[in-house]
């Protein structure tokens, strides 16, 4: 199993990472080695073995629906990259078309 530089470029796009050409070269080689190593899990005969998603194996954890004070809006917005009119200000989310 191996991964190509084009596949790594696609993964970077899916991961929302604007990588440089140099980074793509570097990571492509490293990811190829890592994927080759982790593929060893496929050697294990695991037909019929249930997957474990979680060590605690808890299901349907509920707590009482108690009203508690929320975080202070000014405090939260003070840590935002940009705020305007008591709201988070974000870059445009639509393209012109």
């Amino acid at each position: 199993m191996s991964i190509t530089r084009d596949e790594v470029a696609h993964l970077a796009k899916l991961s929302r990472l604007a990588l440089t050409e140099d980074e793509l070269d570097h990571f492509a080689g490293q990811l190829d080695v890592i994927i080759g190593a982790v593929a060893r899990v496929q050697e294990v005969a695991a037909a019929g073995i249930p997957p474990t998603t979680h060590a605690a194996n808890l299901e349907n954890v509920y707590r009482d629906d108690v009203i508690a004070p929320p975080l202070d809006a000014d405090l939260v917005l003070s840590q935002a990259p940009a705020a305007q009119a008591a709201r988070f200000r974000v870059p445009r989310i639509l393209t012109e078309e």
Binding site: L11, A12, E23, F27
Partner: peptide, 13 residues
């Protein structure tokens, strides 16, 4: 770099 590697590896897996 390590965080980027792991995010991409996880996205792949």
């Amino acid at each position: 770099a390590e965080v980027k590697r792991r995010i991409m590896l996880g996205t792949y897996a």
